[in-house]
Write a protein that binds this DNA or RNA. Structure first.
Length: 861
RNA sequence: GCCACUGUGGCGGAAUUGGUAGACGCGAUGGAUUCAAAAUCCAUUUGAGGCAACUCAGUGUCGGUUCGAGUCCGACCAGUGGUACCA
């Protein structure tokens, strides 16, 4: 017969989810007496169903939201959808389903799944970036930025598939080939839309210092990504005319190492440098070389890893400080037109890339920096890139590298051959895409008037619905009527911009929409001022650079366009790790965990019992099939178990290994607690008895209050795994006291412990907590009860354990009274009388005794 | 290639931020309960040596600073994230 009192997670979870929804319990409140707290998790791309990564990040955010409510805050905790993007177009191409329909279906499904997790969102604030209202607001913002000259159109490289005649994303380029056609990918220049993020480069670096609640590693990565450097733009004059009609008389290079100028043995220019183009006009070999350079994709990784190649132009330039020295000029595939001036001078002895190039081209390698401390800076083996003393450098000899830098910059400026220059690695943000499923760029291109913004009254510019995906390329380009418009300026026939925005634009400002998602204005100043910026943003470390940098830029730009009055998008940031799982490979490829059977430490295919190779744990991904569907777990064990497992064991910032047995353990734990609560009769609370506790009762109370302190601190510090450990430890203590049925222990104290336990468990496993709380107190919901407070007087023990070390190695421990903590003489006397200490000392007098009060005594012999 | 992070028992991890390494959990082993099993409960569980008290070794590798290093510094090895059009 089935036990009526058995833990049925499904029933409990459905019951409370319904109840919470009916009471609208998680609506953002505006109690005047409470402080406001905005907790935001990165919104998901609606791929179809939630994955374990979602379960993890949304559980982390939910714990914080519920904890903040319990500690007396008005909490804004919203959810929405990053609804534009490529997968919808791929689905359209593959399954002949319209991206809008596919996306809507996915959102509905994922919303149901998120609701099954019991997340405390205010769903009234939900929106998707593909909503017409969001599109309209984004287009308004874009036009404001355009009018401020923060957006502009220029030509830029894109990956080009010559067979499919279409632009490819970096992801669609696999080993330099198009993913569908398999053709070698080329680069092609297209007119595209840019944001002037470089206008804010200094500010984006400098204000990182203000972000005290951001992880250091993210700030370091952003700083390096922006890559500010101080250097010199220096001109090298060309020895003779390149051609009769060429006006180019010199090459300007950018360098951060002007101190090594006398070690320079060549110049290298980018394949798309203006000078390269002139030279190529009458040089077929160079033309072929440029073509080859353009075969490398556009990604930085590809450009850096490519074999370093150069082409000698036969042009010579004069060394600016050595009268009779001429240097050869090469076109090199590792020089980028987008950085500095698109030209460099090469110093093989002190730059590894120049060194490799010089070896290949048989160019001289001349050492000009010497460092006595580095044992060997053997320039015949590798470049020496550090600091040191300048040698072989005429008037610079004897200076330090820093002094020489300043000297060369000054002398170059005096002689009018160079200028001091600040340079950034960061370049402007290319924010347009040649795709359908995105927010249209609200611009009209007119042959007579040029670039004309769409009039505000004509917004939003929505996507046409009647498109097909059977043709290759951007459907907006093929659409005959949508493109055709009359120019708002001159009234003549004109064409719509057919590009759409990068989805990073959508996510650069979405946190500002949640406080008032239905407002006609892009930003509701009053509400945004009240809630924004979010106190805590939670998301994956994979967004550490791009998304967060773009959001920071947008916030600064929106401040300057007077939309908002703050300049950083997120006060606090937390980056969680990925969810990983072992991989399984059978004779026919990868297998899902559900398809295999484990026997000992071997794995077998359920179907035919063939042995499976168990691979190391990797990020859950469709391609490796090492995925566990969260809904399977929720259906089998319940959302509370899934949530608890996500929080146990792994610290949130680290990768988490999914393990079936770990989930099982969490479920058993909840079941144990459930059974205990249903078999146990709780006494009424009586404060007098509590405050009068002595002996075992006192130490139990001390235990309870220490657990409260430990769990609370851990939650405050985002160490949820430690919080879970502290809470479980508390339950062990309470259960042990019960099982021993010690008459000495007062039931009121046990009740005090269980109440604290349930309240602290509630942010993690809200459903079972609510149900069990109902047993203790029928009149109140958990949201009506505030977080348990640790009583300071119960946090200290009378006795302290001291560690006794000899030469730093533990030999013994002693218990001392709290009041003897600082009585060094008394303690040392006790220690020197301990048997094993006497034995180890062997009548020798200690050289030194180091005593750290309350912690350790170290005897040095 | 470059930037950033991570490395502790059989496994996931803890360690008051330089002061008793292994909290909490998983697994394993033994026991209780049961006709039996599941479930549950109890005990043990870093390795080596010892009947035992205990001794020695031990936090990716090698070296350094310190009375004392998982924690700080240097070099290396391995894995992960990002690398501007995946989100």
């Amino acid at each position: 017969m089935e036990n009526k009192n058995a833990y049925n997670a499904k029933l409990v979870e459905k019951k409370w989810q319904k109840f919470w929804q009916e009471k609208n319990l998680y609506k953002a409140t505006s109690n005047q007496n409470k402080k406001d707290y905005y907790v935001l998790e990165m919104f998901p791309y609606p791929s179809g169903k939630i994955h374990m990564g979602h379960v993890r990040v949304y559980t982390l955010g939910d714990v914080l939201a519920r904890y903040k409510r319990a500690t007396g805050f008005n909490v804004l905790h919203p959810m929405g959808w990053d609804a534009f993007g490529m997968p919808a177009e791929n689905a359209a191409f593959e399954n002949k389903i319209h991206p809008a329909i596919w996306t809507k279906k996915n959102i509905n499904n994922m919303k149901t799944q998120l609701k099954a997790m019991g997340l405390s969102y205010d769903w009234d604030l939900e929106f998707a970036t593909c909503d017409p209202l969001y599109i309209e607001c984004q287009q308004k913002i874009f036009l404001s930025l355009y009018k401020q000259d923060l957006a502009y159109r220029k030509e830029a490289w894109a990956n080009w598939d010559p067979v499919d005649q279409t632009v490819l994303s970096n992801e669609q380029v696999i080993d330099g080939k198009g993913w569908r056609s398999g053709a070698l990918v080329e680069r092609k220049k297209l007119p595209q839309w840019f944001f002037r993020i470089t206008d804010y480069a200094d500010e984006l670096i400098d204000s990182l210092d203000k972000l005290s609640n951001w992880p250091n590693q993210v700030k370091i990565m952003q700083n390096n990504w922006i890559g500010r450097s101080e250097g010199l733009r220096l001109s090298f004059s060309i020895t003779k005319n390149i051609s009769e009609n060429s006006k180019i008389k010199e090459i300007e290079v950018y360098t951060t190492r002007p101190d090594t100028i006398f070690g320079c043995s060549f110049l290298a220019i980018a394949p798309d440098h203006p000078l390269t183009k002139i030279c190529a006009q009458k040089d077929n070999d160079l033309k072929a070389f440029i073509k080859e350079c353009n075969k490398v994709g556009t990604s930085e990784e590809a450009l850096e890893k490519v074999d370093k190649k150069g082409f000698n132009t036969n042009i010579k330039v004069k060394h600016p400080f050595l009268k009779n020295k001429n240097l050869p000029v090469y076109v090199a595939n590792f020089v980028l037109m987008s950085y500095g001036t698109g030209a460099i001078f090469g110093v093989p002895a002190h730059d590894q890339r120049d060194y490799d190039f010089a070896k290949k081209m048989n160019l001289p390698i001349k050492q000009v920096v010497e460092n006595k401390e580095s044992i060997k800076n053997d320039i015949l083996q590798e470049a020496y890139t550090g600091k040191g003393k300048i040698i072989n450098s005429e008037f610079l000899d004897g200076m330090s590298t820093d002094e020489a830098k300043k000297y060369i910059i000054n002398i170059s400026e005096k002689q009018h051959i160079g200028t001091r220059s600040k340079q950034f690695r960061l370049h402007d943000w290319c924010a347009s895409r040649q795709r359908y499923w995105g927010c249209p760029v609200p611009i009209i291109l007119c042959d007579h008037c040029g670039i004309v913004p769409v009039k505000e009254d004509d917004l939003p510019v929505l996507l046409p619905e009647d498109v097909t995906f059977d043709k290759i390329g951007n459907p907006l380009d093929h659409h005959q009527t949508w493109q055709k418009v009359t120019c708002p300026e001159c009234g003549r026939e004109a064409k719509r911009e057919t590009q759409t925005f990068d989805t990073f634009v959508d996510s650069a400002w979405y946190p500002l929409r949640y406080p008032s998602p239905k407002s006609k204005e892009p930003i509701d100043k009053k509400e945004v001022q009240r809630w924004c910026p979010p106190q805590q943003y939670v998301g994956g470390i994979e967004h550490a650079i791009l998304h967060l940098l773009y959001a920071r830029f947008f916030t600064k730009a929106l401040k300057d366009t007077k939309y908002i009055n703050f300049d950083e998008p997120f006060e606090g940031l937390f980056c969680q790790g990925m969810v990983c799982h072992k991989t399984y490979k059978g004779k026919d490829g990868w297998l899902e965990p559900s398809e295999i059977e484990l026997k000992g430490n071997k794995a077998f295919n359920k179907k035919d019992q063939s042995e499976i190779i168990i691979g190391r744990s990797e990020k859950m991904s469709k391609s490796k099939k090492n995925i566990v569907d969260p809904m399977t777990i929720i259906n089998q064990y319940g959302a509370d178990t899934a949530r608890l497992f996500m929080l146990s064991d792994s610290p949130p910032e680290r990768d988490l290994d999914w393990s079936e047995s770990g989930v099982e353990g969490c479920w058993k734990f909840l079941k144990r607690i459930w059974t205990h609560f249903h078999n146990y009769k709780f006494d009424e609370e009586n404060l007098e008895i509590l405050n009068d506790a002595k002996g075992d009762n006192l130490s139990l109370r001390q235990n309870i209050h220490k657990s409260i302190k430990e769990a609370t601190n851990s939650i405050e510090e985002f160490k949820y795994n430690s919080a879970v450990a502290a809470i479980r430890k508390l339950s062990n203590v309470l259960l042990t006291n019960k099982s021993k049925s010690n008459n000495e222990i007062t039931e009121q104290i046990v009740l005090e412990g269980w109440k604290a336990f349930i309240l602290m468990l509630a942010p993690m496993t809200p459903h079972i907590a609510e149900e069990l709380w109902n047993i203790l107190d029928k009149d109140k919901m958990i949201t009506d009860v505030s977080w348990p407070q640790a009583n300071a007087s119960l946090l200290q023990n009378n006795n302290i354990t001291l560690a006794i070390q000899i030469n730093g190695k533990l030999k013994n421990t002693i218990e001392i009274n709290q009041s003897d903590k600082d009585n060094k003489d008394k303690i040392i006397k006790i220690i020197l009388n301990l048997d094993n200490i006497k034995k180890t000392l062997n009548n020798n007098t200690p050289k030194k005794i180091i005593s750290i009060p309350g912690k350790v005594v170290n005897i040095v012999i």
